[in-house]
Each structure stands twice: as C-alpha cells, then as structure tokens.
Amino acid sequence: MAHARSFIPPFTRLATCSIAIPKRELPRFAVLPLQSIRCASTKTPPPKKKKKTRNTFIQYDLKEMQQFSLVDAMQYIRAFEVGRDPSSAKYEMHVRLRTLKNGPVVRNRLRLPHAVNTDIRICVICPPDSAIAAEARSAGATLVGEDEIFAQVKEGIVNFDRCICHADSLAKMNKAGLGRILGPRGLLPSTKTGTVVTNVGKTVKNMAGGSEYRERMGVVRMAVGQLGFTPDQLRENVKAFLDEIKKDMGQMSDRISKEIHEVVLSSTQSPGFSLSGEFKAPNSIATKELGTPL
C-alpha cells in the first residue's frame, strides 16, 4: 500500500520547520513559567511486555493454612453466629479443585440427606382433586390447583417461590395469560427451564430438598446445612456433597483430570475454616455439646 501520497508529508514538514516555526517559538519561551526547566518528557513509555497467560489456577501450599476438624470448625462457626436465626444463616462449603482454567466444569444438582432450604413454597398447576394433585401435595407442594391459582395470581398475590406445571395443564395456563405477572419474577413454567413435567411428585421432591452447584473459577460452592444441624447431620451432608463432586469428576475423567485441593467450611458471619478431613480432633469438645439448639 505504498502510495505516492506517503512521500508528501516530509516535504511539507521540512518547509514549515525551516521557515515558519523558529520565529514563532522564540517569544513563547520567554512567557513560560519557571517550572519549564524541569523538561517534561512527552515521550510515551515503551510498550510493556505482554504477560504470559496461564491456563491453570494458582495453587497455594496448604502447609501454611491451619486446618480444622469438622467439630472444631462447627464450634467456632456457632460462636460467630450467636443469636442469629438458626434457619436463616447457613453453613457453606467451598471446594477448591486442581483444574484447568478453560475446560469443562463440574455442574450438577443433588439432594442432600438433610434438606437445607426447607421453607421453599412450591406451587403446582394441575387439575385439583386428581391423582396428580394428591401426589404433589404429599411431596410437599403448598399450592395445588388451576383456576384458583390463576385468579390469585391475576390479583397480584404470588405467595410461592417455585412454580411447576403439569404437561396436561400447560395449554390452560397459557390461555390464562400469567406471563405478564410471573414472567418478570422468573416463575413462569416452561419446558426450557424444566418446570413443565409429567412426573410432578419427583420434581417437587427434588426441588424442595435439592440444590444446584457449579464450578466457578475452580471453586464449587454450595450451602450444605442449617445452623441448627448436629455435627452428625452436617457430616452426612458434607459427605454426600463431596461424593457427588467426585462422581462428577470421575465422569469427565476421560476428557480432563480434576482433583479436590481444599475444602473450606464457612457461614454467613464467620470466616472460612479449612477442613482437615477428620471429624473430631483429639482435643476437640464432645459432639453432644454441639447438638443443642443454637
């Protein structure tokens, strides 16, 4: 792309340099303030060397981290959470993995042996007085019906956190036009989100006690227990969670290798306690003492 045009600027610059500028520059020097002696450099600094990109997360040496047994960590966390509502503040688990930055991530749902979110209100849209409705009620749904729910929602009363629709009632629901109210809240059942189902009972059960987890930046985080749990209950939940993660990692072992690096237990108000993997240390308190209500 070497045009003839590219030769023109040097000529013009030469001309202006030799004649026009020196005469104009000279008087301006005299006007400048005293600080101009400092010679401000207008040169741009040389471009920085490009940082080498890495495809693994930095792994810290866990020798520097004090690790705790589950009972010890629970004693600390219960003290930090003193006076809080035992069902609102939750034990959280953070599982650090040894993994690549780019690549498939661990992602799944599971049902813990002891449910964490017990206060979820589920609404099931299906014909009332049918076998499906009875099944949904027994699985833990709080609101079951068709026209009643439509009327309620249209009035603006939405007292549920999840909404499931039976496949046979889908047409009726679409006709009722709930999208304007439920849509913005993310409650409208649709096949895409897996909330239009035929097996209502199973879905409700999974929703009531199930929770989702997903690896983000090499860490899987999930709530594993309520503060009122006893150490044994929490141990069962933690074990179920870790087993599930290991199973997920095993399934993708042909594509990528992942390993658990560190397991941290924390809660809403407490710092994170790195777990040593044992249930009780020799000098930790009796399990019975943590069994009492908070």
Binding site: R78, A79, V82, G83, L290, T292, L294
Partner: peptide, 20 residues
C-alpha cells in the same frame, strides 16, 4: 454486648443455647 462479647461466651460454653 451481643456483637462483641456473646460470641466469646458461646465459644466457651457451646452447649448453652443463646437466643435473641
């Protein structure tokens, strides 16, 4: 008292329920 001292009491006496 709750924020600054109760956690210490609870830590030393884990089996005593403290409600607020």
């Amino acid at each position: 008292f709750w924020r600054e001292m109760l956690p210490r009491i609870k830590y030393r006496n884990p089996s005593i329920p403290i409600q607020i």
